[in-house]
Design a protein around this nucleic acid. Structure first.
Lengths: 130, 130
DNA sequence: TTATGTGCAAATCATTTGCAAGATC
DNA sequence: GATCTTGCAAATGATTTGCACATAA
């Protein structure tokens, strides 16, 4: 990863945020300082920075949204290699909501817990993906 | 919500799955049984069923992916009304990965924990959204 | 017979990619 | 100078919407 002014700007601009902005927000803000930066560059650099572990992309799985018929509260395991999603039939940790409520000034209605890792099918034959 | 054959088909088809399919997968499968069903109908019904709590849509927040500069493991609170994302500075529950490993035949590298609810800004003035 | 749902095509978002020109090493 | 990065525009992918017709209540 060579140096680039634009990449530095993207990283710096994201650093100003505590509110988890989208690529488009970063782009609009940067346009004011650097009127020639392009949206593609912002996307490219956010992706690159996330792949290098410098920033974090928040998403459930990449690509299309997934659906499930089971509406009972339960947890999930996502394979970071193939993207498969598995149910985790462990008992819900009821105490988590209460523990979190001390840090949140709002009403908590529940939580989602998603484990990440590499599934058996993918084994070790898998580089780290976004 | 009136009855519709297509909606019933969508719900039934999703019910066959244990693997959290995307809208497009459901559509392709249904096309074989019902060659005239449209993708828009599948999307409309998945959305409607999820809004009515009959099925579940798995997503972090709807719309564009979000990014954050803080790569230290930490949890999040998502307001289901306005979509805002807040950091939750509570201590990570290390024991969760171990507890989950009993149910997963794969390698767990970590987890994401996302609390849902209504933030102070939105208060109660907010209907349930997708 | 009114409200609701469907199929199709077009529209809208989110994100990526090809390519020629510019920056970095 | 070889390689990496950019900007632009076009391409792709995911999802929604307008509209005329069909179906349910």
């Amino acid at each position: 990863m060579n140096y680039s002014r634009q990449r530095e700007e993207v990283q710096e601009q994201l650093g100003f945020h505590h509110d988890h902005p989208s690529a488009d927000v970063i782009y609009s803000e940067l346009r004011e300082k650097d009127p020639t930066i392009s949206l593609a560059t912002v996307y490219r650099n956010l992706k690159l920075l996330a792949q290098n572990g410098v920033i974090r992309r928040l998403t459930f799985v990449s690509g299309a949204d997934r659906f499930e018929p089971n509406i009972n509260p339960h947890y999930h395991f996502v394979c970071d290699c193939c993207g498969k999603v598995f149910d985790v039939p462990m008992q819900a940790a009821e105490t988590l909501d209460e523990a979190a409520s001390k840090y949140i000034s709002g009403k908590i209605t529940g939580h989602d817990l998603v484990f990440h890792g590499i599934c058996d099918g993918c084994n070790d034959s898998c580089e780290y993906s976004a």
